[in-house]
Design a protein around this nucleic acid. Structure first.
Lengths: 201, 201
DNA sequence: TGCTTTGCGTCACTCTATGACATAAAGAGC
DNA sequence: GCTCTTTATGTCATAGAGTGACGCAAAGCA
């Protein structure tokens, strides 16, 4: 399950230059423009070159800052796997595994909802099937976190940990995708919580 | 969940020409060459142009017969969603939903195992993360079948059906990926059956 | 004023995928 | 045999996602 690409997420985001030439545009600005264009006209319909031109840089610069086009959508949410890893450890050891995953994932999504762009990002993902790929940076990392957590528990073999990681991750994804179709009154974490309620019946 | 791309799978495979120019190479030959090259050197490492050259056609011809590079790997397995749909209907209506999914998926994979290339295809998928995408033709179609089946049951709302479809599909996938890492003695359907046993504990 | 460090533009290139157009090869009807 | 139609393929051009190489720009530092 581990591979070299796991570290790709760390490449994204704003470089922290103290000595050399400072960056021309912030990651926030790039992502704001990209999110606006993609929510207006669709992820597939607007190319990276077009986003770059609107921002005022070259496509080459975008691809130096983000490993893939999809990573622009995820932005700071890519680092959420660290929060998930910690949240999993903080759940009650006496609760069942899926319950602990539910608590951690719902908490992570609820806390991440303070970012005003978070819902915007989720909506674009929910409307773009190719972004729902299991190999998308966050989903891959969530699954890795869930797997690492599960496999460290006593009496959990490899296959069981894999199944746990896959089903927990895709249940969260199912909840998020379903949330996109709902009226804007509800919160994403509520949809994920409901999704887990259905899984655990 | 439904979109126009669902029908793309029907494009793949050998054309059935009765009047015009006959095809130069069969789908079996194309897939045999592609599977050999990709298992030897990796899916990402061998381009479609290289496969086409080895077969004796142009890359344009390959992309006319297969909608994407990934569809060459899946080949006849793409049509397995029809078998899955029928298998789901034939399960006992008194069994729980996940149990019915387990029976249908395991049966489908067991029956498909008579194709001598089936295991070969699964191994390439298991070793290639980008082929494990939720938007890969077969996984998308499996999930669609599972969703359609679940949502037609009394008392199953949309979110519940989505969660059911996602978790059943990804449990099968987890089993298949795990099987690739095992010694060749076991059968793929056994790994999937074990995966479901873990999910349903 | 150099020197080093870091970000960016430019250019060239690969690979997947698609549209347009011409051509090849079969069957059907005469 | 000769057209006409049908279907598959080759060729060419193009778009879009990435990537490597190279040089320049702009900052801090000695």
């Amino acid at each position: 399950m581990t591979n070299a690409r796991t570290t790709r997420a760390a490449d994204a985001g704003t470089p922290q230059a103290t000595r050399g030439r400072p960056i021309v545009v912030t990651a926030e600005h790039i992502e704001a423009v990209a999110l606006r264009l993609w929510s207006e006209r669709g992820f597939h319909e607007v190319s990276v070159a077009e986003v770059a031109a609107e921002v005022g840089v070259t496509a080459r610069t975008i691809f130096r800052r983000y490993p893939t086009k999809a990573d622009i959508v995820w932005g700071p949410l890519t680092a959420s796997f660290q929060i998930l890893t910690e949240a999993l450890e903080q759940t009650s050891p006496r609760a069942p595994l899926l319950g602990r995953a539910r608590t951690a994932l719902v908490g992570m999504i609820r806390d991440g909802d303070t970012d005003p762009t978070a819902r915007h990002r989720i909506r674009i993902v929910g409307r773009t099937p190719e972004l729902q790929s299991s190999t998308s940076a966050p989903f891959l990392l969530w699954r890795q976190s869930l797997y690492d957590f599960a496999v460290a528990q006593p009496g959990v073999d490899d296959l069981r940990a894999q199944v746990f990681a896959w089903s927990a991750q895709s249940t969260a994804l199912a909840g998020l995708i379903w949330w996109v179709t709902q009226d804007p009154g509800t919160a994403p974490w509520q949809a994920v919580d409901e999704a887990f309620a259905h899984l655990m019946d």
